[in-house]
Computed example of a mutant assay.
Amino acid sequence: MSKAVIVKAKRSAIGKENGFFKHLEVQQLLAPLLRHLSEGIEEHLNDVILGNIVGLGGNIARLSGLQAGLPLHVPGLTIDRQCSAGLEAIRLACCLVEAGAGDCYIAGGAESVSTSPFEKRARFSPEDIGDPDMGLAAEYVAKTYQITRDDQDEFAELSYQRAWESLETGFYKQEILPIEGQTTDEELVRKRDIKRILLRAIPTFIKNGSVTAANSCSINDGACAVVVMSENKAKSLSLQPILRFVDSEVFGVHPFFPGIAPVFAIKGLLKKRNLDIRDIDLFEINEAFASKAVACAKELGIPYEKLNTRGGSIALGHPYSASGSILVTRLFYEVQQRQDCRYVIAAIGSGGGIGLAMLFETCI
């Protein structure tokens, strides 16, 4: 069986809703990434697999590939697993490589909430079960897993601190492909007094709650994708593998608690591979809400020094389908900065109560 490896990864800067990317549709965000990532390997591409959940419809992957000027033989597949879509696209590409269906894919996701035609979100769960908005579900996680407002604000402040440090040291430059000249995530364009903002924020979703706009992510535009190849194909093209796919797990929980779903996916993944939390050197778990990140860390016993070490979506924003692929891209560049990484995990929870986790080992 041919092992799947990741050899390239790039993302756009992340824009605010109706911010600097407000005039770009999804395919216009994706096309520069696809053009860049495919350079030199155009004729080897088997497919482009992309997640998108609030776009204009149609096959965004095919549309984006054509707009990028990819060869006509590259078909394009668009998938929707809500916020897990970008990570699922990478998972699917890895599984296709290992099944022998192909040996070269671009996979990721993108979202343009600014140009989305939808005024309301899709339904995640039927009425007889209940379909809470994600902020309310974050409150349910906080209450059930005893995550306090202080716990959430502390983590949110840490996310911002790490994001600013990563910006100031130039870490994000290697991740970001400039699109329309934008090289900095819009949330970081102007430095703010986050401690003061956290203290003054009021509960957003329920009276006397603990989830606020300050300890939650924003709504954003952005795109991200990676190149997944068989290890043999990468070697034949003289491309350096950085992350090698090991295994994955997807798991469903009650739709009231999507924020805790990554815990079960990660536990199942580690059990399959006879590994322990202590064997994993880095975790990237989509934040979305601080209650989710803190609950996952608490339930799994993940120390904060191993979790989202460069900041996350609370500080940078959450462009839905792109977020899962951003987790992998973050790991792609972070492991190249370290000498002590063997195993890393990317995980995300999404609407409807779905958790997805991917385990990689480093190749360098």
Rank of each mutant, 00 (worst) to 15 (best):
L275V: 08
N215Y: 08
I314P: 12
A234F: 10
D185P: 01
R342I: 10
D340T: 08
P178D: 00
C95P: 01
S38T: 10
R196D: 12
I202C: 09
K22W: 02
G102I: 07
R338S: 09
E287L: 00
D276K: 07
P203L: 00
V5M: 10
G222R: 05
F289Y: 15
A223M: 00
N286Q: 02
E180K: 06
S84T: 06
K120F: 15
L243I: 03
Q27E: 14
T204L: 15
D153E: 10
P117W: 07
S230K: 08
T204Y: 13
L29K: 09
V211D: 08
S2W: 11
G69F: 03
E249T: 13
T148R: 07
E186V: 06
V189P: 00
H318P: 03
H23T: 09
P75V: 04
S325H: 10
A225E: 03
L77D: 06
I49S: 03
E231I: 12
T148Q: 09
T204M: 14
A163P: 13
P126H: 07
L188W: 09
V74I: 06
A85N: 05
Q240K: 15
L199W: 10
E187L: 14
P32N: 03
G351C: 09
Q337F: 09
Q337C: 06
V335P: 06
K267D: 11
E165H: 13
S230N: 08
G51R: 05
I79N: 06
P319R: 03
V54Y: 13
Q240T: 15
G352A: 03
F264L: 09
L24S: 06
Q28P: 04
I49M: 05
E17D: 14
V328K: 05
L300G: 04
P117R: 08
L37Q: 02
K306F: 02
L177H: 02
